[in-house]
Design a protein around this nucleic acid. Sequence first.
DNA 1: GTCTATAATTTGATAGAC
DNA 2: GTCTATCAAATTATAGAC
Lengths: 182, 182
Amino acid sequence: MTTSEKLLDAAELRMRRTGYNTVSFRDLAADINIKSASAHYHFPRKEDLGLDLVKRYHARFFTTLDAAAAGENTRRGKIECFRLAYRSALVDDRSMCLCGLLGSEIASLPDAVATEVKGFFKASIEWVASILADGTPQMRHNNEAAGFVATMQGALMLAICMEDAALFDAMTERALDLIAGD
Amino acid sequence: MTTSEKLLDAAELRMRRTGYNTVSFRDLAADINIKSASAHYHFPRKEDLGLDLVKRYHARFFTTLDAAAAGENTRRGKIECFRLAYRSALVDDRSMCLCGLLGSEIASLPDAVATEVKGFFKASIEWVASILADGTPQMRHNNEAAGFVATMQGALMLAICMEDAALFDAMTERALDLIAGD
DNA sequence: GTCTATAATTTGATAGAC
DNA sequence: GTCTATCAAATTATAGAC
């Protein structure tokens, strides 16, 4: 694994817990046993690191999601994959969605990073909407898809905040029924 | 208005946009034309300010909500008041819910502030559940209420992030139908 | 209550040696 | 690529005058 990847891993761990502004080059460098000046060699400005991190998160999220959804034949099965991606953030990583946290503090982000976060949500809504429409996007599906994404984000935040993982399932199962039928 | 109240107002404006950690005593003091040392006279530590701010937000949120819901006779009408409280944060204040933002970055908050944020969500869930149960709380109502709160929080975050206020209505109207019946 | 002044720490970032 | 050394700025917080 390259030093850049190690830095991105360290940044993801920290930013998914405490956000963009609380994470310093010194902390990240210490995490992987280098000095902060070395970290700046790989990412000259913090904005460069933030941008690469959100791009990597975005790409990995949908690659993993598409692979899982490819094994499902029903709309409900595919959308359940989307829900499980958020559940995995909670259960496996005990962390927020990177874009859910950065999205909350979007007014404090560099413009380029903020734009990338918006891109993640746009892609998320379109992904869910495309499942609903079976390949033919429609405005109504977009609204339903956005509501589903919002519920996943809010449920993840609340479950982490309340330290109650079971609450995530309780909060999201009806949303799945609503969007995919009982 | 007292200086403490002015400081809390300034802190609320800033923290509902960028979170807890980006807000400094110097910024708040400058907002109300005093010096940061004077701000420390009113709130010795930042944690004191954060704690008072969340407590004030909590109290005001439910006072306003109760007043609005008292004018409604139906369950749906009362829960619609809850939705409108979030809509007002978006449309009137163009800001996140204070606790939605602080909840996202809860791992970076002083313990006392984090506890107070959790208290806001506990009270929110109980408020919605009590409407569902007409005064007789039940576990099933608690899960439905939590899901509704999650959707409001996620929808507010997404609408602000995507700079699309209309999206909030589109995302939340079905959640209201789901919980209160069509 | 507010001020000036300042301490102690942390931060993003750079210069230059190896 | 990584290091030491350093900078300029910002941060939380305190001491003491008025």
